[in-house]
């Protein structure tokens, strides 16, 4: 049996843009071009009906997709009720509801 010294290697916390998977980002840019207009203001997150009770953060989900950090996205996006409030407050006219729907579709296609 191998001796255990109690050391382990931590997974890197760094976003490495050289290896980041960008397929989800490309899918969204193609199917909902307004996705490119987000300025990360956080209005969508602030108004989110679901975010009051859950960790749903649409601003951050969109940014994570742009940085290839897409692991664990499905349970996150399932918290959205598609109420559309976020779309009403977005100052850049991002079609946030369709962003959510496109993420769901992309998750099915890419899984």
């Amino acid at each position: 049996m191998a001796v255990q010294f109690g050391y382990s290697i931590n997974k890197s916390n760094t976003i490495d843009m050289d290896t980041a998977p960008r397929a989800m980002e490309s899918y969204l840019l193609l199917h909902e071009p307004s996705f490119a207009r987000c300025i990360g203001c956080g209005c969508c997150t602030a108004t989110c009906s679901s975010g009051v009770f859950t960790q749903l953060n649409l601003r951050q989900i969109q940014l994570r997709i742009r940085r290839g950090e897409t692991q664990g996205l499905l349970p996150e996006i399932q918290k959205c009720m598609l109420c559309g409030k976020c779309q009403m407050v977005c100052p850049r006219g991002v079609s946030t509801r369709n962003v959510v729907l496109s993420i769901q579709r992309a998750l099915q296609l890419l899984s």
Binding site: N13, I15, Q60
Partner: peptide, 12 residues
């Protein structure tokens, strides 16, 4: 740092 992600970031 990608300060909106709160994570260090690197690229070539």
């Amino acid at each position: 740092e990608d300060t909106l992600m709160s994570k260090p970031l690197k690229m070539t």
